[in-house]
Computed example of a mutant assay.
Amino acid sequence: MKTLTRSLLLCATALTGTQAFAQSTVTGIDSLDDRITDVRNDANKDLSDMEDSQRFGPNAFKPGWGGAVALTYAGTSGNTDTDDLAIAAKLTYGAGAWQHTFGLGVEYGKDEGSRTKQDVFGFYEGNYYFNDRFYGFGLARYEQDDFASYRKDSFVGMGPGYRIFNEADMAWRVQAGLGARYYQVNNAARDDDTELAGILSSRFYYRINDQMFVTNDTDILKSDAGTLNTNDLALNVKMTDTMVTRISYKTEFNSAPVDGREKTDNTFGVSLVMGF
């Protein structure tokens, strides 16, 4: 809200700029440069927090709200070979030992007038830290993909987590839990079921220097219907005080695809991420 307020003040000053600079006694003109500097510093701090401070434990998680929005161009190979546009958003909220993360992603693509991709993904994860290393988590995720083996796939579960490394330049945490999985098969009958499922996740972060950092996120979801394995490797490069370029390679493996579909999808992506 502080950054937003200052931004609105800057807009108001710009709209009245002709009169303001013509009358040097107008209140607030002398402090305009200070306001611009404050806005830039706040944006730079928010961008640093966007590097996923959740990886570093409760003391490093920024209290209150934060987040990032990304616009992505992606080329895919596997079940679909398309050029796609995607929008993703992530919000975080810290309050004492609690950490909350919300995410939403939408991908849509067309090829010569025909729809080639329509994927909607959302999740919520809440973590409660008992100390700097050990925590408990609750997770809810939902995905609807008209071009995947499972048209709908959701999971709700909970379990323990542990930080193996928690250094300034390197962080690694793992977590495992049990829950319920609901899925709908992407076939003519739209068969669906709800099953007991388990999830295993890994989150790795390494800072190369002040401008570059690497992340590798892995999730394995297992139920009677099969195993879903997702690995997302990314290089993040800071371009300005408020923008990061993210180059990623994502692999999705399904041990039991429906007839006519492959087990593996690979996605190469280049994203422009803005922190706030």
Rank of each mutant, 00 (worst) to 15 (best):
A148K: 15
A88E: 08
T76E: 03
D145C: 08
G126T: 00
I29T: 09
V156H: 11
T218K: 07
S271N: 14
Y249V: 08
V237S: 13
W65A: 01
S223V: 01
A140G: 13
W98K: 08
D34H: 12
A225V: 06
M170E: 09
S31E: 09
V273P: 05
R261S: 02
V69K: 00
G157V: 04
K45N: 12
Y124D: 04
T242Q: 14
G269K: 11
A88K: 13
M158C: 04
G161W: 13
D81Q: 15
D34N: 11
N236A: 13
A43L: 15
A60Q: 02
L32E: 00
R246P: 02
L9S: 09
N41D: 06
A234Y: 10
R261A: 01
K45R: 15
R181V: 03
F204G: 04
Q144I: 09
M239N: 12
E252R: 14
L196E: 00
G57D: 01
D34L: 10
S223W: 10
E143P: 09
S271L: 01
P257G: 01
F147H: 12
N209C: 03
A256K: 15
L228W: 01
A95H: 11
S271P: 02
F134V: 05
G275C: 06
S31L: 06
F102H: 06
M158D: 03
P160E: 14
N266Y: 03
K238Y: 10
T218D: 00
G260I: 04
D119R: 14
N186M: 09
K222I: 01
V120F: 13
D210A: 04
N186G: 04
S53H: 01
Y182N: 04
T264W: 09
G57H: 03
F204L: 01
T13Y: 09
Y124F: 11
G157K: 07
D192I: 00
G122F: 10
T27F: 10
R163I: 01
G275T: 03
N59Q: 05
R133Y: 02
K2M: 04
G275W: 08
T16Q: 05
K117D: 02
M274N: 12
Y205D: 07
A89S: 03
D241Y: 13
F268W: 06
Y128S: 13
I87T: 06
T72Y: 01
T215E: 02
G28A: 08
N44A: 15
G64D: 01
N229I: 00
Q19G: 08
K62T: 01
G78C: 00
N229K: 12
Y93Q: 06
T80I: 03
T101I: 10
T92N: 06
D132T: 10
E262M: 08
S24T: 04
R55F: 00
Y73C: 00
T18Y: 05
N229L: 14
D191H: 07
L233G: 07
T72D: 02
N131C: 12
G138D: 08
D265V: 03
A74M: 05
D119T: 11
T245P: 07
G275H: 06
Y128C: 02
Q19A: 12
K45F: 10
N41I: 03
N127V: 07
G57L: 00
